[in-house]
Write a protein that binds this DNA or RNA. Structure first.
Lengths: 210, 210, 210, 210
DNA sequence: GATGAATGAGCGTTCATTCAT
DNA sequence: CATGAATGAACGCTCATTCAT
C-alpha cells in the first residue's frame, strides 16, 4: 500500500528482464538468509523484498533450497591467497574485519551461514568454505609436525573473531579495525605457525569481486 | 519463580508429576533447540520427545519462545572462575573441549545457540553468556591498556575452537582433547594477556553434571 | 457468507466430537471424490462441505491420499454372495441398478472411482473390487473351459450397465429398474455361464451395511 | 473453423509450421488427456511433450478446456457402420479389442475419456460418442418393442469390455483378442437383438489410421 | 507473430496456539 | 486441571493464463 506511487521515483528497475529479476532475487535472498537463517526466511519474504512475484523463484532457481545454495556461494575475496606469505594472516584479518560484507547483511558470510547450520547441507558448505579459505592456506605455511592442528587453531580464531564482532557484538571487537588487531594477531600467528608473520598487509587483498 | 516455595504444600504425588513433566519438556527442548535450532524445532517435536501433550508447553511456559528462553539458560560450569588464575585459560579450553555437553546435544551451548542466532533473544543470550563466561574473567586478568580487546580476542578463540570442533568439524580439532591444545593455548594466552598462563589445570573445574 | 446465520437451524451437529467430525469429513470426501474425481477435489472443498477446518483432514487421516483410500473403500453390499446361486446375477443387477448409492453421489462406487483412474492406486482398488464383487463369484458358477473369460465378460456387462446408466445417461438404461433388465440378463447369463440363471431375486440381497 | 480455407493463401512454409505445431500439440494432448485425465494433465506437460512453448496452446486453442474438447474429438473408425448388418456387433468388438488406439494411449477413447468424466463437457462427449457409435446403430437392428433398451444393454457390454480390458485389467479380457470373444458375443447379440448375428467380420471395417 | 517474463489463485501440508469439555 | 479438538495463518510449490517486448 505504501508502494503504490513508488513507480515514479524507482530509477531504473527494468521490468521483464530475466537477468535483472534473477539478480534482485538473489540479492534479497542473500540478505535474508544471512540475517534470519534458512528456516526463518520464506520465499515470500524474499519475493517481497525483491518486489517480484514469488513464483519466479521457482522458475529461476527451482526451489528454495537451490536458491539458498546459490545465494550462499561465497566468492572468496580475490587476492586473499595471493601476495606475500608473511602477510597472509594479516590479509585474513582484514577479510574478517574490514571487508565490506553488506551484501550478506554486514556479517562475514561464514558467520551468517552458521544461522542455518541446523541443515547438514549448510554445514557442509561452511566446512568447505573454512577449509578452502583458511585451514588449507595456513597449513601450507605451518612448520613442524602438528601443522594441521595449528592451522585449524588459527582458523578458529578468525571465525571466532567474526562471531564476536557481529553476532555477539562485544564492545571492543565490534569497533575494532584490522589495524587494531594486527599486532596481536601477528604475534600469535608467528608463535603458532613457527615462522615470522607480518602484522600489516600492503593492499587490501580481499575486495570481493561481486 | 512462582514455584519456588510450592514444595511445602504439595500433596506428595501430583505436584511432583507436574514438576517432572516440566523438567522433561525442558530437557527435550534443550536438546532439540541445540541440535536443530529454534525454527526447525516444533513444539510438537518437543512434546513427542517428552511423551506429553503439546498444549502443556503453553500451560507451563506460555509460548514456544518462552520455553526457548528457559531452555537455553546455561548453567555455566561450576568452578570455571574458581581456582588458580594462571590456569583459567586451561580450564576454559576444557570447558569447550572436554566437558560433557550431552545435555545440549554434545555441543557447547554457545555453539548450539548460534543456530538460533537469527532471533535477537538468542543473540542476547549468547552475548550475556560470552561476557559472563569468558570476556569478563579474562579482562580482569589482562595487564596493560587494551585489556578489553585482548580479553575479547582470547574469548573469540575459545568460541572459534568450539565452532570448528562441532559445527564445522575440521579434522584435527574435532578429534583433539584439551591436553592436545593446552601447550598452544598457554603460549598464546601468555602472550596476549601479558602474564604467564599454565597449560594444565589440576581438576576439571567445571563439572556441572546434569 | 451465506452460512453466517446457519448455526441457528443446524439441528444437532455436535462440536468437538472426534468421531462425528471424522464421519462428516469422510462423508463429504466420498461424495466429492465420487463426483469430481481425486484430482479435481481439493481438501479445502471437502472441509468446506463438512463445515470443518481443513487441517483436521490431516489430523484424522494423515493426507489427502489416505482420506481418499478410506473414502473409497466400498463395503460390498451384504448378501450379494449369499442366497440361491441361480439368482446371483439378478442380485448383481440389483446392486448396480436399484441399490441406493446416494452416499457416492448416486453412482455405483466402481463407476465413480473410474473418475480417479489416472492414479494407479485407484486402478488397483477398482481391480480388486471388480474381482471380489463380480468376477470371482461368477467364475465359480461358470461351467466348461474358458470360465474365467466368460465370468469376466459377464462382469464387464455389469460395469458397462452402471456406466451407461450414470455417466453416459442413455435414456432407457437411466430409467430402467432391475426388473426391466432381469429377463434379458437372465437369458444372457444362462447362455454365458452354461447353467440356468433366474431373472428374479426374492430379496434385495444388496442393502449396503452402512 | 476459421482456418478452413487458409490453405489457399499460405506462403508455403511458415503456415505449414503453424499447422504442424498445432497438430503436434493436439497429438500430445490426446495422449496425455487419455492417459492421465484432464486434471492430472498440465498445459506445460503437453507443451513439453510437443517441444513447443506453452503459451502457444492459448494462442492456438484459447484455453486448456478448448484444447481438451478438440483433442477428445474421436474420429469413429471408418467402416464400422458399413458392411453386412449381421457382422455389425463383430465389428464393434474389433473396434474395442483389436483396433490400434495407440493415438489414445492404447485404450479405446471412450474408456480413456471416462478418466475425465468429472467434467460435464467430457461426459457430454462420451454420451454423444456412445450413442453415435453404438446405441443408434444397434437400435436400428433390434426387432421388437424395447429395442432401445436392448440396444443400450448391448452397448453397455461393449463399453464394459473396454473398461475391464484396459482400466481394470482383468486377466482373461486383457489378453483376449476379438476372435476369442466372437462366439460368445455373437450368441448374446443374437439373443438380445432377436436376429442372427455373425461372430466374424471379413475385414476390420475400422482402421482410421492417423 | 512468437517468445518468455510475469501473475495471482490455489494446491497439500504444517505451524503455533486457543478453547471447550 | 488436563486432554485433545479446533483454528487460521503461513509454508513451499504448481497451476492456467496474460502481457510486454
Amino acid at each position: 500500500m505504501s508502494t503504490i506511487d513508488d513507480q515514479a521515483r524507482e530509477p531504473a528497475v527494468p521490468k521483464r528482464d530475466r537477468e535483472a529479476t534473477r539478480a534482485r532475487l538473489l540479492e534479497a535472498a542473500r540478505l535474508r538468509f544471512a540475517r534470519e537463517g534458512y528456516d526463518a526466511t520464506s520465499v515470500r519474504d524474499i519475493a517481497r523484498d525483491s518486489g517480484v512475484d514469488a513464483t519466479l523463484i521457482f522458475r529461476y532457481f527451482g526451489s528454495k533450497k537451490q536458491l539458498f545454495d546459490e545465494a550462499s556461494a561465497t566468492d572468496l575475496p580475490a587476492g586473499l591467497l595471493e601476495g606475500p606469505q608473511e602477510e597472509l594472516v594479516a590479509r585474513m584479518v582484514r577479510t574478517v574485519v574490514d571487508h565490506d560484507w553488506t551484501k550478506y547483511g554486514g556479517e562475514h558470510p561464514l558467520v551468517a551461514m552458521l544461522r542455518s547450520s541446523a541443515h547438514e547441507d549448510a554445514r557442509r558448505r561452511i566446512r568447505e568454505e573454512v577449509c578452502a579459505t583458511y585451514v588449507n592456506a595456513l597449513r601450507d605455511l605451518a612448520e613442524g609436525e602438528d601443522a594441521e592442528l595449528r592451522a585449524e587453531l588459527l582458523s578458529a580464531w578468525m571465525v571466532g573473531i567474526g562471531i564476536l564482532r557481529s553476532v555477539v557484538g562485544t564492545p571492543a571487537l565490534a569497533e575494532a579495525r584490522a589495524a587494531d588487531l594486527a599486532p596481536h594477531v601477528a604475534a600469535v600467528a608467528t608463535d603458532l605457525l613457527g615462522r615470522p608473520m607480518s602484522g600489516t598487509a600492503d593492499r587490501e587483498g580481499g575486495s570481493s569481486r561481486t
